[in-house]
Design a protein around this nucleic acid. Structure first.
Lengths: 217, 217
DNA sequence: GCCAATTGTGAACGTATAATCACAATAGCG
DNA sequence: CGCTATTGTGATTATACGTTCACAATTGGC
């Protein structure tokens, strides 16, 4: 019963995946059903066998982005117990998404994602809220462990982390992948640490390279 | 001779201004000539008396954004000689743009600004480069004055500053202006200072309120 | 005040795209 | 195998948009 419409679901996922990929490369507004259909080797009208209309397809895309974002957080949390390393993991995973052209932020955090449709905007807002909330939780945990200065506002810090990702993705796209997002993320991460992390080991030099995998209380 | 086509230029500016405003609210892809024409009380086809086609209108919009961004920097530089205050001025001016719905970043730094047209993307890249370069210059100056730690990479810092602005603008739009961009910018600015500024006056509390207008060597 | 250039208008065209529908192919099931 | 429901197709419609064009209104200089 859970599998009886397996083919349908596979098609739905194929279409949603294709749509997400196209949105990632051309923006929400640039998405055409014809392009989506072509991606999976179908004719445009066939999409209506799996989605009521374009709006429902977009909803599926946003759902997909949501689960990918939250999976991102979950994975990073599983990888290490150090909240700072978790944050870094989230950052670097995002950067990898960008490099692979599957830039999630391009969908959710793109400016044009929201113009127009109100319901969609609220949906996007909810996803962003969930994500930022999850990041905020890690930050709070880091504060309780004395790793992040307690005066720092978690939501602000979460947005600052996002602020490393979003412009980097934009520049990456602008330069057709020539902008080195990885290097930027590493440098920005050092600045992020300098902004909020407790303890300053060297002070004069911020060569915190390979300080990973050291903490396990 | 310079004024003989004044009316034309006025119309051109009206149209470009209207287009910029519409792009700011609906994204580059969402811009329709009909909407632009309506804004200035014209009929769509009238636009072609002032612009060769839509692409040229978009170019005018980007030009406008460029001059606004650089004017932003120039004003901030004129206001004070303290490079840190200049950076803060740039940040806050951007935030004001966002609050006023004339969000420049929404145009230049929006993800969808570039999909498709190659020439436009290069143009946008150039504008971004100019802007970031100008910010980078200020940062370098701050470093030479010993206000910003010399190990900090100026371009990275410039992008971090941008990273305060862009996500804030996105959230502002997502929440229909309910997200308090000003408060966020102030908090994020404190974090920015913590990340790169030399000297830590209070350390425990970052209440750097109203520390403006004090330096004049 | 008249003429010519400029600017504005409405109709029209081509194209892209979302959506519908009747019909064909296919798959699952007895 | 044969039936039925599901899935895919091609034609079609409606709409929005960029663009062009012939013509009208307006404006500026003589």
């Amino acid at each position: 019963m859970a599998e009886e419409k397996l083919d349908t679901k596979i098609r739905r996922e194929q279409l949603a995946e294709a749509a997400m990929s196209l949105v990632a490369s051309q923006g929400l507004r640039g998405l055409s059903l014809a392009a989506v259909a072509q991606r999976v080797g179908l004719v445009p009208s066939a999409i209506y066998r799996h989605f009521k209309n374009k709006e429902e397809l977009l909803r599926a895309v946003i759902d997909r982005v949501e689960q990918r974002l939250l999976a991102n957080v979950a994975l990073a949390r599983k990888e290490t117990e150090d909240p700072l390393e978790q944050l870094q993991g989230i950052l670097m995973r995002h950067i990898r998404f960008i490099r692979e052209g599957r830039a999630v932020p391009r969908i959710i955090f793109a400016e044009d994602a929201h113009a127009g449709n109100l319901e969609r905007r609220q949906r996007v807002l909810k996803v962003v809220g969930l994500y930022m909330g999850a990041v905020g939780d890690i930050i709070r945990q880091a504060q309780s462990e004395g790793r992040i200065r307690s005066e720092c506002d978690p939501p602000t810090l979460a947005m600052l982390l996002l602020g490393i990702i979003v412009p980097a993705g934009i520049l990456w796209h602008l330069t057709d992948g020539r902008f080195d997002v990885t290097r930027h993320a590493q440098r920005a991460w050092q600045l992020f640490l300098a902004a909020c992390a407790v303890e300053k080991p060297t002070r004069s030099h911020a060569n915190a390279h390979s300080r990973r995998r050291r903490r396990k209380p």
